[in-house]
Design a binder for these strands. Structure first.
Lengths: 235, 235
DNA sequence: ACCTGAACACCGTTCAAGT
DNA sequence: ACCTGAACACCGTTCAAGT
């Protein structure tokens, strides 16, 4: 907290020895705590330094308070992550009605949700073990449902389908996104590639047969194909 | 470590004061460190107390050494989890050739893999951000591939399909499993149910329409249905 | 090569006490 | 009701030094 330090010296050097009221006036206006403020700061830290830095302790330091104070506004870290996700989902543009049939629009929406999480793999990982329930996430569920129903799907198929589709989006972001980012994860990817390359046709005949297809295709290609495949299965 | 304590007292009370050689002889034979020993102890702790207790520090204490010693055998915690998964996959029984057609056998295999992870949600969560590459996991990939190819699927479809199917299995276990277990996660489930119950038909028309279907069905039902749906989409 | 103690640089959450 | 400092009970990983 360099700014706090600076202010402390300012107080000592230039001000009267009555410390408390003066340093209070002098300090940059401390923003009032609130759930929204917490989420905003957490999103900024995530953007600038990654989710792993957006810890309760760090947030508290940033907001010039102790970690215990945050627990007035969120139950725990998981709830904070849920609130962060909701804010990000709010920023997703809704599918244009003119953008093709329901299937195309649905794939477009799911793809843009996935890309959004792709850039935040840590959050995706956290969301996977959550039940997001913010208003904007409910909006997303409603929109996906609407598109599935527009495709003539029975209610149950649509209801269960939305779960599979959103879970696939989140899991893909958690899995692929973290690998694209972290250096250690790149090592794991290489380990698998090596293991597959070394696999003998005797022990792993099918693996050897489709070896080249396993790692083929771009992320975008595989993503669209996956969503299309699941949607086709639902229909 | 009560056994170490007991032995220490035994040494002090009954033995000569020359401590080191005696206590060395007296101590239960310290098993030699090895990757397999690490994995075995980690699996036991996970079984008895959950994955979150199977930390590097705890493993080291259990193996009567310092945490630094473990890094000779595994690169990091992620690699340890990968090795644990491989051991668990080894214990999965292969699908009986008589158990119906390829589709039924495939669903059976995927279901049993999912149930196995379901009981270990923490591991499932960890595996999701991993590329498992152990011999038994490769076996699993090969078997799934074999069944898809037996269904007459082109190579590419099978290769990309195995990714979707295994990811879905892992993600389902990570998501549902942790909720079934942790008390806090149950709260999140309730939060979502509440939010859905309170959703207005004006803002969320589709959500309200299929409201009852969203939470319908048992885990087993939805699991089989999901795998069936994805397989149908692949075909 | 393998093993170690100690250190580095942190965590989330709770609690009693304040205002 | 809201806020706080301090504490509780831990983490993963690295490093220099030993054997």
């Amino acid at each position: 907290m360099p700014s706090a330090l600076t202010n402390m010296f300012a107080t000592i050097v230039f001000m009267s020895p009555r410390r408390e009221p003066v340093s209070r006036r002098d300090r940059p206006a401390k923003p009032p705590l609130s759930r929204a403020a917490l989420v905003a700061v957490a999103l900024r830290i995530m953007r600038e330094e990654g989710l792993e830095k957006a810890t309760m302790r760090r947030l508290a330091a940033e907001l010039d308070t102790g970690p215990a104070s945050l627990y007035v506004y969120v139950r725990n870290t998981a709830e904070l992550h849920g609130a962060m996700l909701d804010e990000l989902v709010a920023g997703l543009e809704p599918p244009e009605p003119a953008a093709g049939d329901w299937r195309e629009r649905l794939i477009g929406l799911l793809t843009s949700y996935t890309w959004m999480l792709f850039a935040r793999p840590g959050l995706a990982r956290s969301v996977l073990t959550l039940r997001p329930c913010g208003p904007h996430y409910l909006r997303l569920i409603d929109t996906v449902l609407g598109l599935l129903l527009a495709g003539g799907m029975p209610d149950r198929q649509a209801a269960w389908g939305v779960d599979i589709l959103l879970q696939h989006a989140t899991a893909t972001a958690a899995e692929q996104g973290s690998r694209a980012e972290a250096a250690e994860a790149a090592g794991e990817e290489a380990d698998l590639a090596l293991a597959v390359a070394e696999a003998g046709a005797g022990a792993y005949p099918h693996l050897v047969r489709v070896r080249d297809e396993l790692f083929a295709g771009t992320g975008e290609e595989r993503m669209r194909w996956s969503f299309g495949t699941i949607i086709d299965g639902l229909s």
